[in-house]
Amino acid sequence: MAYMKRSPWIIHYDGSSCNGCDIEVLACLTPLYDVERFGIINTGNPKHADILVVTGSVNEQSRQVIRNIYDQMPEPKVVVAFGICACSGGVFRECYNVDGGIDQVIPVDVYVPGCPVRPEQIIDGVVRALGVLEEKRARMKSGEPAEAGV
């Protein structure tokens, strides 16, 4: 039975976002968008989470933290990069202190560009992530490593 798709719990980490994307992520929880409809919950705890949502780009400060949170999540897990900063570094790409998108540190499954991402896009991104999540679960069940390419 695939309950995985019906109960995706997320943890949201702010790499070095300008807070634009963060606000939009939070907006999804408000009555207007209400992502809990889909069973989505913002847990704030990697051990409970299935989806790692990162906004903002990676820099020296956030590099280890992203890695650490990612490592703390039990399989199967999916990473979604929200906002162009998280996807590639965006307008900050050339900054002296920015390393680029979060795929510099951990494997990213879904890229959702936008500056900032709109809540509709976020919901769409999470739904896409669910597909990946389900794939990984099936792979895990058949005994293969969930992370194919890592």
Binding site: Y3, M4, S7, E36, R37, F38, G39
Partner: peptide
Amino acid sequence: TARMQGRVGPPVLQPFYDVGKLLEKEHV
């Protein structure tokens, strides 16, 4: 709770989905 906050809220069976999912996760 969701209705009191003006939201639609999850399905009534959501808690079962949650636990079902938790059982599917890796044992760490």
